[in-house]
């Protein structure tokens, strides 16, 4: 099987320094050789490092900055079977103006919905600067024929989605069919056109950190603009060690190719405290360059409410309650 790396954004800017990487995607065997040649992850070390970074104390003005930065990084998400156009409209209103009482609260980065609701979101968010992201490729299981997945993507893009969150075929990845996963990502990237592609690894199903590192590199090599932890439908979702490994992958990828790709953490991040810990990790592991909505995102729904409550606490000096933020 031959893999057309030339079609991917990974190849375009890859200079001589990345010649090894271009080779990596040449065929199944070289892909396997490259991914299995990646250094193994010291799981105990990764957990200890993640835990150590979580002990940083971020207070007062630094906390205020972190809260606003985190708000700007939120992909406000609703991915329920019960979603309606009305719910998406109200969510979009919240995305553009998270706090009705306080115009100084920045808008979130994007709203993330199912493909059939993209048109609704686009209509409401026109002119606000908030992006519309859509999950696609038979989300969340990814169990569909490639042609079906591509139609899914094309429809979301046609409806106006500027970001596509695809899921990889975990079954293929875990059974070692790396080229199949690679080809799928390449094909989806092509179907995306100008839309940004986020590749969901579903790390909760990848079992080991070694697999997370391989999947991260696979997605980066195939041209994913972001690598994303989870669908939010599988537990565990985003965990600190997984985030650490993925941030290392984008950092190393940038060091070898000069291309800056993003990381999106999704699922299970509900409190400001957790979000701030991840921001510390981004800064320490990947670098300050990544502390930007263009390269780091939180996929979340309830996190935004907690961020707003903590912001209220900082501005009013009194502890806030859930009565003062919208339910969804």
């Amino acid at each position: 099987m031959s893999i057309a790396l030339s079609q991917t954004s990974a190849s375009g800017a890859v200079g001589t320094a990345a010649a090894g990487l271009a080779d990596a995607g040449r065929d199944d065997a070289s892909l396997r050789r490259f991914l299995h040649g990646l250094p193994g992850v010291d799981q105990v070390g990764a957990e200890a490092r993640a835990a150590a970074l979580a002990t940083r104390s971020i207070k007062t003005t630094a906390k205020a900055w972190a809260i606003d930065t985190a708000i700007r990084m939120v992909d406000l998400t609703t991915l329920e079977g019960s979603d309606t156009a009305g719910k998406v409209r109200s969510l979009c209103g919240k995305a553009a103006r998270p706090d009705p009482w306080d115009a100084s609260v920045p808008a979130v980065a994007a709203v993330c919905v199912y493909p059939d609701l993209v048109a609704t979101a686009v209509q409401v968010l026109r002119g606000t600067g908030v992006q519309v992201a859509s999950v696609a490729t038979a989300f969340p299981s990814g169990r569909a024929a490639l042609a079906t997945k591509l139609v899914d993507v094309a429809e979301a893009v046609a409806a106006g989605a500027s970001e596509i969150d695809m899921v990889i075929d975990r079954g293929a990845f875990l059974s070692g069919q790396y080229a199949k996963v690679f080809d799928e990502i390449v094909a989806v990237k092509q179907a995306c056109g100008s839309a940004h592609l986020k590749v969901i690894l579903e790390t909760g199903e990848l079992v080991t950190l070694d697999s997370v590192r391989r999947a991260s590199w696979l997605a980066l090599l195939a041209g994913g603009d972001f690598i994303k932890t989870s669908t939010g439908k599988v537990s565990p979702a985003a965990t600190p060690p997984v985030a650490l490994v993925m941030l290392q992958a984008v950092r190393d990828f940038a060091a070898r190719t000069g291309e800056v790709r993003g990381v999106k953490l999704a699922g299970g991040i509900r409190t400001t405290k957790e979000a701030v810990r991840y921001l510390v990790m981004v800064n320490e592991v990947a670098g300050q360059r990544w502390l930007d909505p263009a390269t780091f995102r939180f996929g979340a729904s309830s996190l935004l409410n907690d961020l707003l409550q903590q912001r209220h606490k900082l501005t009013t000096g009194a502890y806030d309650g859930p009565d003062y933020v919208s339910i969804d």
């Binding site: 009194a318 502890y319 309650g321």
Partner: peptide, 9 residues
């Protein structure tokens, strides 16, 4: 004072 000002009390 914290109890009195807490908005969720």
């Amino acid at each position: 004072p914290w109890l009195a000002s807490h908005r969720d009390v």
